[in-house]
């Protein structure tokens, strides 16, 4: 263990701002990348689903017209 106490660890030998800023921004940018990637996948799924529903509705409407 390089630090004596928890507050020592946070202080990072006087460099706390730079160290935590670097780690924080890095984590944040990776997180944003992950979020955008996962939402992209969900968006594609939603898109296909909506298309399927629309096709079903069109088909149903055509069937109704046929019975009239």
């Amino acid at each position: 263990m390089a630090f004596a106490s928890w507050s020592d660890f946070i202080a990072m030998g006087g460099y706390s701002f730079y160290v935590w800023l670097a780690y924080g921004v890095s984590l944040l940018s990776v997180l944003l990348l992950v979020i955008s990637t996962v939402t992209k996948r969900k968006k594609i799924f939603k898109h296909v689903e909506q298309r399927l529903l629309r096709e079903q509705r069109i088909k149903a409407a055509e069937n109704r017209e046929g019975t009239l």
Binding site: M12, Y15, V19, A22
Partner: peptide, 21 residues
């Protein structure tokens, strides 16, 4: 890297940025 690695004798604890840089 953040807690257990020894501090650099020249750069102190700021060198811990190396573990992501």
């Amino acid at each position: 890297g953040l807690a257990f690695a020894p501090a650099d004798y020249q750069q102190g604890d700021s060198f811990r940025i190396i573990y992501i840089h």
